[in-house]
Amino acid sequence: MEQDSSDQHYSDKEKIAAFDNEFMPHIDAMYNFAFRLTHDEDDAKDLIQDTFLKSYRFINSFQKGTNAKAWLFRILKNSFINDFRKKSKEPAKVDYQEVEGYYNSEKANSNITTDLRIDTIKDMMGDEISNALNSLAVDFRTVIILCDVEGFTYEEMAKILDIPIGTVRSRLHRARNLLKEKLQSYAQSMGY
Score class of each variant (00 low, 15 high):
residue 111 N to C: 09
residue 123 D to F: 12
residue 101 G to R: 06
residue 115 D to N: 15
residue 108 A to V: 12
residue 114 T to E: 14
residue 100 E to W: 07
residue 90 E to V: 04
residue 86 K to Q: 11
residue 89 K to Y: 10
residue 96 Y to K: 10
residue 124 M to T: 05
residue 111 N to E: 13
residue 91 P to Y: 04
residue 68 A to R: 00
residue 118 I to R: 14
residue 105 S to I: 10
residue 70 A to G: 08
residue 87 K to C: 05
residue 66 T to I: 07
residue 96 Y to T: 10
residue 77 K to T: 09
residue 82 N to F: 07
residue 76 L to P: 00
residue 124 M to F: 14
residue 87 K to M: 07
residue 94 V to D: 04
residue 92 A to Q: 14
residue 63 Q to E: 15
residue 67 N to Q: 03
residue 102 Y to F: 15
residue 117 R to A: 12
residue 86 K to Y: 14
residue 66 T to M: 03
residue 122 K to F: 13
residue 91 P to W: 04
residue 89 K to N: 12
residue 109 N to T: 14
residue 113 T to G: 11
residue 96 Y to W: 15
residue 98 E to R: 03
residue 93 K to H: 08
residue 68 A to P: 02
residue 83 D to Q: 13
residue 109 N to V: 06
residue 115 D to M: 11
residue 122 K to D: 07
residue 71 W to T: 00
residue 67 N to P: 03
residue 120 T to H: 09
residue 132 A to P: 00
residue 85 R to S: 07
residue 82 N to Q: 10
residue 117 R to G: 11
residue 74 R to W: 02
residue 93 K to S: 11
residue 75 I to H: 00
residue 128 E to A: 08
residue 99 V to Q: 05
residue 100 E to R: 08
residue 103 Y to K: 04
residue 76 L to T: 01
residue 89 K to P: 04
residue 92 A to T: 12
residue 87 K to D: 09
residue 106 E to D: 08
residue 79 S to M: 09
residue 72 L to D: 01
residue 106 E to Y: 09
residue 113 T to N: 14
residue 79 S to A: 15
residue 81 I to P: 00
residue 64 K to Q: 12
residue 91 P to E: 07
residue 86 K to P: 04
residue 134 N to Y: 04
residue 134 N to T: 01
residue 95 D to L: 06
residue 66 T to G: 02
residue 132 A to N: 03
residue 121 I to G: 03
residue 102 Y to H: 08
residue 95 D to S: 11
residue 124 M to C: 08
residue 93 K to L: 05
residue 80 F to I: 01
residue 101 G to M: 08
residue 107 K to W: 15
residue 105 S to C: 07
residue 116 L to K: 13
residue 100 E to N: 12
residue 78 N to Q: 10
residue 70 A to K: 00
residue 105 S to D: 13
residue 86 K to C: 12
residue 128 E to T: 08
residue 109 N to C: 09
residue 118 I to Y: 13
residue 130 S to K: 07
residue 89 K to S: 11
residue 81 I to G: 02
residue 77 K to Q: 06
residue 76 L to R: 01
residue 118 I to Q: 08
residue 97 Q to A: 15
residue 91 P to C: 03
residue 63 Q to A: 13
residue 91 P to N: 12
residue 107 K to F: 15
residue 113 T to F: 13
residue 82 N to D: 09
residue 92 A to C: 12
residue 73 F to M: 00
residue 135 S to W: 03
residue 71 W to L: 03
residue 86 K to H: 15
residue 74 R to A: 09
residue 76 L to H: 02
residue 75 I to W: 00
residue 136 L to R: 01
residue 102 Y to R: 06
residue 119 D to E: 13
residue 111 N to D: 14
residue 75 I to T: 03
residue 82 N to Y: 07
residue 120 T to N: 09
residue 94 V to H: 03
residue 122 K to Y: 07
residue 123 D to I: 12
residue 66 T to Y: 01
residue 106 E to P: 05
residue 127 D to F: 04
residue 67 N to M: 02
residue 71 W to R: 00
residue 104 N to M: 10
residue 96 Y to V: 06
residue 111 N to F: 14
residue 87 K to Y: 08
